[in-house]
Design a protein around this nucleic acid. Structure first.
Length: 881
RNA sequence: AGGCACGUAGCUCAGGGGGAGAGCGCUACCCUGACACGGUAGAGGUCCCGGGUUCAAAUCCCGGCGUGCCUACCA
């Protein structure tokens, strides 16, 4: 690549587009099942085809991408399996809305044409989110992209359904389900979202048939009274031990209702008398079965009262409630009504209030499956991170109820069941030609489709070709990790566990990493209606994808939600720019010279930075493997900005610009090139684009940074780190004096040092040039203790005392104040240690090394205090003269 | 109703039995030949409150208070 000087600041847009195209063209995301490398695999949580990239997707996929890119660099064959979900209800809604704008309904088209229409919609708009993931830099194996309605995946769905049916784990039955009167479909328990709603508790009088008086029942849903088939009281309830009659009359309709006794009824709540509506309440249904009561459905699929409702037929459920209450009131049957907060299920798609309705549905008997899925986590075959979620998982798995999988919509996998006129039900992989029972050919296929989660539950193996036996399954199943939000722990993760164990005989993933939610800057959940959404696409346009990804990683602490604001992203945009400019500096100094062998003779700062980059590489790697993304990002940030840029580059300027010592200059160049190359690799999982761009700018660079090895930990040098610590300490001390004393930045100050530790003198003398340039000092002089300059500001380090002679620079009052402040700080710092050492219990019981450490701290501080005091006295003596 | 998290600098948060940390913001100074999307220095804290365990608690335990979230068939 032509070496033009870098622009002064980084321009992401063009770079991102170019490198993503390059990676795809080169097939760098493609996983080879025949590879010798160890496998690492992740299946993407498939976004809805109708989806638009939001913050949640961005976080989720950034994390997966960090893992995948890191694993590739550490020698794994990585498969990141992508795809989308057909999102039954959501997608059907979108297309129905489209039809509505043409003045049509799906019924005008008919089932087949409608489904055709959905496929058309998908072809046109369905790829949107995939392109948005690409913009994020996601390194998915797009050649393998899957869709839950694909032929292969549909085959897997059918296979699973039939096998579960054959084993008696799928059944069809009458049950109370959650019905959405707007979407016209059953919903699973999970899809009914409970929300606190202000309603009323109505006390209604049910007159006795053969006696005076009445029984008062309390209800929140008076309209369901039309379907009552009994009234229940607790057999233990003394209030109802002696009733004048065993039959009451249903208000408004006059139907005779038996009074039954069941311990389910609470004596605490309401009036202690409960109306029983088996067709419209799950508990009433249960009681109804127990007492052999009739179940009368009083509402149709729209939530409108049906024929059974007599005079109220045709009224909407809410309208019916209103009218019925008025009538009850008029007849003196409404004893009282009070405000009542209770939680009511709402459709997760359209927020319509769910109506519990009795109907015939298909269910998965989850008990046996859940038991296995529970065990797999308990015995550690699958690890959930952070572990606190395991509890939640156990809780749900042990209380799980059968899963209603049928949906009364058109878009989805049609249930492979056929009904014969003779009453036979045929469940089969292939469309049956005739009834095996009566031989009749008039078979009707079930019209219901399956819950979308039924197909997503198979995702980890259906995407790899199951039920066929494939090399992909052999190499990449079970997958290594699943990255997801806790909101779909039950919807999806738990169900994948069940099916994976059942059909693959092994867990679908060894790790599950549960990440937090992304909220707005004030902690509110982002939602369109609140208008507080931050659109990741706009953010990427504005600040660049790398800055955005880094922000997500940096804030992704385990177990805490992320509050996102543009200000933060701007901060990391600055970081990207910092990297860019460090590259500018590096490239200018390298002068086109390719990275070569490191020379044996190295400067202190060279040894130090090599040691640091070694350690940081290890730290960052370990943090990524433990899903501590924020720590990984923090370590890179700290290293790049505050060690490499703030210290190393400044220190290296000396030798790099010193034409008088070519060997030293060459050594610095070699180290600069080496460290910068490593730094880019450390950045790559977080910032794929800018790291790739700069990688190619490095002289002599070959291939993509994607396939470059993760930096080794091979230059640890504790001595160099200790010596650099000393140098930094001296520079810091001088800078502090300069800053506090108000010495003009341009002025050069003299420095006198006294060595407290003789070894320090040698180290510092060798680094005199570095100290002079970074602290802007003149010549460094050494004095013996006791010969310290009188008119000087002083700072005490453990190894040396630093004096800056002040004659002509500042007034001494300022220095006295500074020393006082410093002394006070030291005293305050050391107080807890002194207290500990004065405590006999501490001396006796604390570990020896802890006691030693405290002693050392006190000794060091006292030593500093003494030296500072000496200087204080000298100045006082001088001032008072 | 039960469960789970969280409460640390002005803001957003790391940390998690032995020296209170970061980023942003703030103050002062500086256009030093990579970068003002920058540099140097600095100010700022009852680690929510109350008990307990311990030689030692911001950290562990118990109880409050506050804030989120999840689960639940008491009409």
């Amino acid at each position: 690549m032509a070496q033009e000087p870098l622009a002064k600041s980084y321009e992401p847009a063009e770079v991102e587009k170019r490198w993503y195209a390059f990676w795809e063209q080169e097939g760098m995301f493609h996983a080879d099942p025949a590879s010798d490398k160890p496998p690492y695999s992740i299946v993407i949580p498939p976004p809805n085809v109708t989806g638009q990239l939001h913050m949640g997707h961005a976080l989720n996929n950034t994390m997966q991408d960090i893992l995948c890119r890191y694993k590739r660099m550490t020698g794994y064959e990585v498969l990141w399996m992508p795809g989308t979900d057909h999102a039954g209800i959501a997608t059907q809604n979108v297309v129905e809305r489209q039809l509505a704008s043409e003045g049509k309904t799906r019924h005008d088209l008919g089932r087949e044409a409608f489904i055709e229409r959905v496929w058309e919609w998908r072809a046109e708009y369905g790829g949107k989110i995939i392109n948005q993931l690409k913009r994020l830099g996601a390194s998915c194996d797009w050649e393998r992209e899957r869709f839950t309605m694909d032929e292969g995946l549909s085959k897997a769905v059918r296979e699973v359904f039939v096998r579960l049916y054959e084993e008696g784990l799928i059944y069809r039955g009458d049950y109370i389900i959650n019905w959405c009167p707007r979407c016209h479909t059953a919903l699973s328990d999970l899809e009914s979202e409970h929300e606190e709603v202000k309603g009323g508790l109505y006390h209604i009088r049910y007159p006795f048939k053969n006696a005076n008086g009445y029984l008062v029942v309390a209800t929140t849903r008076p309209e369901t009274l039309l379907g009552d088939t009994a009234v229940a009281v607790n057999p233990e309830d003394p209030r109802y031990a002696d009733l004048p009659d065993d039959t009451v009359l249903l208000p408004l309709l006059g139907r005779e209702l038996p009074i039954i006794r069941d311990s389910y009824v609470s004596t605490e709540f309401g009036t202690g008398a409960l109306k029983i509506t088996p067709a419209h309440d799950p508990n009433d249904f249960m009681i109804g079965q127990k007492h052999d009561l009739a179940a009368i459905r009083v509402m149709d699929d729209n939530g409108t009262i049906n024929q059974e409702g007599g005079p109220y037929a045709g009224l909407d459920r809410f309208e019916a409630r209103k009218v019925m209450l008025e009538d009850l009131e008029a007849q003196g049957l409404l004893e009282k009504q009070e405000d009542y907060m209770h939680s009511v299920g709402h459709c997760y798609r359209c927020k319509t209030m769910v109506e519990p309705i009795l109907s015939k549905q298909w269910f998965v008997k989850v008990g046996p499956l859940a038991e296995q899925a529970l065990k797999a986590v308990q015995d550690g075959r699958t690890k959930i991170v952070p572990a606190q979620w395991e509890k939640t998982y156990y809780e749900w798995m042990t209380n799980i109820r059968d899963w209603c999988v049928s949906r009364q919509i058109w878009w989805g996998h049609r249930i492979p069941a056929w009904y014969c006129e003779c009453g036979e039900v045929i469940v089969s992989r292939e469309t049956p030609g005739k009834c095996p029972a009566c031989g009749g050919g008039e078979l009707r296929q079930e019209t219901d489709v399956l819950d979308t989660w039924f197909s997503s539950a198979l995702w980890p193996f259906s995407t790899m070709g199951w039920p066929e036996v494939t090399p992909e399954l052999a190499k990449f199943y079970p997958t290594s990790c699943l990255v997801t939000g806790f909101d779909i722990l039950f919807f999806w993760v738990a169900r994948m566990m069940m099916t994976g164990i059942k059909f693959m005989d092994d867990v679908p993933f060894t790790d599950v990493y549960i990440h937090a939610l992304v909220r707005d800057a004030s902690g509110q959940k982002m939602s369109k209606s609140k208008g507080n959404v931050i659109d990741p696409l706009i953010v990427m346009d504005q600040f660049g994808t790398d800055a955005f990804r880094f922000t997500l990683a940096a804030f992704a602490a385990q177990g805490r939600d992320i509050k996102m604001s543009e200000e933060r992203i701007a901060g990391y945009r600055n970081f990207v720019n910092k990297i860019w400019n460090a590259a500018r500096f590096t490239l200018m100094n390298l002068d086109g010279q390719a990275k070569g062998e490191l020379p044996r003779e190295l400067g202190l700062e060279d040894r130090w930075i090599l040691s640091r980059v070694s350690r940081v590489a290890q730290e960052v790697g370990a943090a990524i493997e433990d899903y501590r993304f924020n720590e990984a990002a923090g370590a890179v940030y700290q290293f790049v900005w505050h060690e490499f840029c703030d210290w190393y580059l400044e220190l290296a300027k000396g030798p790099l610009h010193d034409e008088g010592d070519p060997a030293r200059q060459e050594a610095s160049k070699a180290v600069l090139a080496e460290v910068f190359s490593r730094l880019l690799r450390l950045l790559h999982p977080f910032m794929p684009f800018v790291s790739e761009e700069l990688w190619h700018r490095l002289p002599g660079a070959e291939g993509s940074i994607m396939t470059a090895p993760w930096p080794a930990c091979d230059h640890e040098d504790p001595e160099a780190e200790a010596h650099m610590g000393l140098v930094m300490g001296v520079i810091g001390a001088v800078r502090n004096i300069r800053g506090e004393m108000g010495i003009r930045p341009g002025a050069t100050v003299p420095v006198v040092l006294t060595a407290h530790d003789p070894a320090a003198k040698q180290v510092l003398s060798a680094q005199a040039g570095r100290i002079q340039s970074l602290a802007k000092t003149g010549d460094m002089a050494w004095a013996d203790e006791g010969e310290a300059p009188a008119k000087a500001a002083g700072a005490a380090l453990p190894e040396v005392t630093v004096y800056v002679p002040l004659e002509g620079l500042v007034d001494f009052a300022a220095e006295l104040a500074r020393l006082d402040k410093e002394l006070a700080k030291l005293q305050k710092e050391i107080t807890p240690s002194r207290k500990k050492l004065a405590n006999e219990g501490f001396l006796k019981k604390a570990p020896e090394e802890v006691v030693e450490k405290e002693r050392g701290k006190v000794a060091e501080a006292e030593d500093k205090i003494e030296r500072l005091n000496q200087n204080l006295e000298r100045i006082r003596g001088f001032v008072n003269q």
